[in-house]
Amino acid sequence: MSTSVKGKTVVVTGASAGIGRAVAREFGRAGANVALLARGRTGLEAAAADVEKCGARALVIPTDISDYAQVDAAAQAVESELGPIDIWVNVAFTSVFAPFHEITPDEFRHVTEVTYLGFVYGTMAALQRMRPRNTGAIVQVGSALGGRGIPLQSAYCGAKHALNGFTESLRTELLHDHSNVHVTVVQMPAVNTPQFSWVLSRLPKHPQPVPPIYQPEIAARAVLFAAKHPQRKQFWVGASTVATLLGQRVAPRVLDRYLARTGYASQQTDALAPRTQPNIWQPRDDEPGADHGAHGAFDDRSHAHSPQWWLREHAAPIAAVAGGAAAVALAVGSR
Rank of each mutant, 00 (worst) to 15 (best):
162 A>W: 10
231 Q>G: 05
152 L>D: 00
165 G>A: 15
250 V>Y: 01
264 Y>A: 07
111 V>C: 13
274 P>S: 04
118 G>I: 04
256 D>N: 13
136 G>R: 05
102 E>M: 13
61 I>R: 08
81 E>L: 00
94 T>Q: 09
163 L>A: 08
218 I>P: 03
24 A>T: 08
241 T>I: 04
286 D>S: 12
173 E>M: 09
144 A>K: 15
142 G>E: 08
254 V>Q: 03
104 T>A: 06
248 Q>Y: 08
233 K>I: 13
21 R>E: 05
325 A>G: 14
305 H>F: 09
132 P>Y: 06
14 G>T: 06
12 V>H: 07
44 L>I: 08
9 T>G: 01
200 L>N: 11
60 V>W: 03
111 V>Q: 12
91 V>A: 03
161 H>G: 06
24 A>F: 10
195 Q>A: 14
25 R>L: 14
275 R>H: 11
20 G>K: 12
37 L>G: 06
87 I>F: 06
250 V>D: 00
137 A>E: 02
41 R>Y: 01
56 A>W: 08
121 Y>N: 13
260 A>I: 01
287 E>C: 06
115 T>N: 06
26 E>Q: 15
256 D>T: 10
17 A>H: 10
165 G>I: 02
286 D>N: 12
155 A>Q: 00
100 F>G: 01
81 E>G: 00
329 A>N: 01
118 G>C: 13
231 Q>F: 07
110 H>P: 10
61 I>W: 03
294 A>V: 07
102 E>R: 15
285 D>E: 11
90 N>A: 13
232 R>V: 13
36 L>Y: 07
197 S>H: 06
187 Q>D: 14
153 Q>M: 14
152 L>C: 00
91 V>P: 04
12 V>R: 05
7 G>A: 02
96 V>S: 05
40 G>I: 11
217 E>R: 15
97 F>E: 05
298 F>K: 00
269 T>I: 05
12 V>F: 06
190 A>W: 05
172 T>G: 12
10 V>E: 00
305 H>N: 07
37 L>H: 05
93 F>K: 09
113 E>P: 04
72 D>S: 13
10 V>F: 07
191 V>Q: 10
249 R>A: 11
201 S>K: 01
174 L>N: 13
21 R>Y: 11
252 P>W: 03
263 G>S: 07
89 V>Y: 01
67 D>R: 14
76 Q>C: 02
274 P>D: 00
127 L>G: 08
123 T>S: 15
107 E>L: 03
317 P>A: 00
64 D>V: 09
228 K>V: 10
223 V>L: 13
281 W>Y: 09
78 V>D: 01
304 A>E: 04
131 R>P: 01
182 H>R: 15
89 V>K: 08
135 T>Q: 15
138 I>V: 15
74 A>V: 07
270 D>V: 03
81 E>Y: 00
89 V>F: 02
66 S>P: 11
22 A>Y: 06
321 V>T: 09
238 G>S: 03
333 G>M: 00
70 Q>V: 03
77 A>C: 05
266 S>I: 10
